[in-house]
Design a protein around this nucleic acid. Structure first.
Length: 299
DNA sequence: ACCCAGGCGGGCG
DNA sequence: CGCCCGCATGGG
């Protein structure tokens, strides 16, 4: 029974250490934009569409159980969960490395167990093209509409299962159909990037590449600039040298590290690269970001 | 009503 | 290189 197709639901469990499903879900990662999250008492549940099925994880304390539906074998489903939630990361070592000041210390204490998830590169690309000049609530609205409209449909227990839409499905869609999902001026970017990822750019080929050349390749895509490329590299490829600087990161760094003085994106990148280890920059950014948003720094 | 949102592309000096 | 501008849309 290698590749079970749908209609059969399977489950398994994994022991985890310092994994907080809620902080991970709420911290502005691709799962924030499309997953379903519920809480009941001590148990937290996260359910999301992938390109080939649907995964549902539930955590109670240090036990994580998961169900899967779709084109998964037992081992590929387990691999998906372990990778998606970065369960192999040595989070203690990361905390020791990035805890350089009181603000970081408070971020680590407030959001202990927040992981940087690993998402499919196309999934990350689509989510973060949508994210530009936008807010998290609306990014979520748009992403879910795209899944609903363009995700492949499977029947499942008298219900419907929507997969995360492939690049080719979006490439084949009309601009109007993409706009109906609320994408606005980003519709052209989305269609163009989807077409490129279907025809000319093989996103899989970026995995073995170094950070800089991979970033250059991504920035060839329409609608992908410095910040979105860093997000794709971090949340899609887990290249930890990536340090996406958005309005929140800019404000919080100016406030915490520069006494409120204005700094350029370039200066902030340089500062981060001197302050934190390259293999931990992504985590440093994520804890800064979520703490800043939570405290509304500068708002 | 008005303002803003995990930025980017294009045009300018 | 830096700066400035417009950009669709929905929620506060």
């Amino acid at each position: 029974m290698e590749t079970e197709t749908i209609l059969m639901e399977h489950s398994d469990t994994i022991r985890t250490d310092r994994f907080d499903i809620r902080h991970t879900f709420e911290s502005g990662q691709p799962l924030t934009f499309h997953a379903d999250y519920t809480e009941s008492g001590p148990s937290r549940n996260l359910s999301y569409a992938t390109g080939r099925g649907r995964i549902s994880v539930a955590s109670k304390g240090n036990r994580l159980s998961y169900d899967y539906i779709g084109d998964y074998s037992a081992s590929s489903a387990r691999n998906e969960v372990v990778r998606r939630f970065a369960l192999a990361d040595d989070i203690q070592a990361i905390y020791a490395g990035i805890n350089t000041d009181p603000f970081m210390d408070s971020a680590i204490r407030s959001f202990n167990g927040m992981r940087i998830t690993e998402n499919d590169p196309w999934e990350a690309t689509l989510c973060f093209i949508i994210s530009q000049f936008n807010n998290i609530k609306r990014i979520r609205l748009i992403t879910r509409k795209l899944i609903e409209r363009f995700g492949e449909t499977y029947g499942y227990d008298n219900k419907e299962l929507k997969l995360f839409p492939s690049a080719s499905a979006i490439a084949d869609a009309s601009l109007e159909d993409i706009k109906v999902c609320g994408t606005g001026f980003r519709a052209e970017y989305i269609k163009s990037a989807a077409t490129a990822c279907t025809n000319s750019l093989d996103l899989q080929s970026l995995y073995p590449m170094d950070y800089e050349p991979a970033k250059s390749a991504l920035m060839e895509l329409d609608g992908v600039g410095d910040k979105v490329a860093d997000c794709i590299l971090l949340f899609g490829y887990r290249k930890m040298e990536a340090f996406p600087i958005d309005t929140w990161i800019k404000r919080v760094m100016e406030t915490v590290y520069f006494k409120g003085r204005k700094k350029t994106i370039k200066e902030l990148h340089r500062f981060a690269e001197r302050r934190w280890e390259p293999e931990m920059l992504g985590y440093a950014q994520q804890y800064l970001f979520h703490n800043a948003r939570s405290l509304k720094v500068g708002r």
